[in-house]
Amino acid sequence: MIPILTAIGAMAFLGLLLSIVLGLAAKVFYVYVDPRIEQICDALPGANCGGCGYAGCSDFAEAIVCLGASPDGCVAAGASTTEAVCSIMGLSAGLGERYVARIFCQGDEQKAVQRFDYNGALDCAAAIVSTGGDKACEFGCVGLGTCVRACPFDAMEMGGNRLPLVDQNLCTGCGNCVQACPREIPLLIPISQKTANLCSSHEAGKTVKQVCSIGCIGCSVCKKKCPEGAVDMEDKLAVVNPAHCTGQGVCLEKCPTGSMVSLQSPALEKPEASSAQETA
């Protein structure tokens, strides 16, 4: 009987001692945590994509409460989440426009000239460092899917023609693909933008024609013909200003290579690419 009692007594003593130490430590080293931080954390999507510019959702929640960060900073969340965060913070919601990623290159395997068969590491940055990529265009998509792997929302996939596809419904505009890309192929544009020049090449027209059949040759006919003056030429590349473009489509008709594309049909990229796969 005695050994059992000693055992119980000893363990109870040890447990009591440790709990007193822990209890004291919790009092002495008490850190006040704003309860709103946890509430906001629960309201946020929890994907930790980093699109808001903070290390993760909990970090962003802390920034909203402690540093006064804007509650609509979460690009992954829909309007309902922003409203929920605003109601926790006692603010009124003012919603910004949704941004989505677009692939600014149309040089697939048929249209872009390939210099050699690439057989190295399956990573765009590695390919550029080692060989410059197999496509001859120095500005185009390398096509090894680094951006696809960077997407935390499964909104991207590699098409069969070695160009990434973006699902506009799933894309949250977090910008992870923009940062992952060693070139500047995925770019964030407003979802309402009606027309875009899906080419990134700043080369002279002659060079572009040698390496790609659908690249922007910098002829600036779109700039001259646009009735709204919505096209600017930036170093031999036409760039559409979404604030002025009304989507009349004059530039689409005039563009000699087809690099100017209408974005108005909803969820344009996926169906078009899948039909291209079938014909190919």
């Binding site: 040890l14 447990g15 440790l18 130490v21 822990l22 430590a25 080293f29």
Partner: peptide, 17 residues
């Protein structure tokens, strides 16, 4: 018992200090 409480204790102290 000792290890579990110790880790807790270290966590509490680190969070403050």
């Amino acid at each position: 018992l000792v290890i579990a409480s110790l880790v807790q204790l270290v966590e509490i102290i680190l969070q403050k200090v």
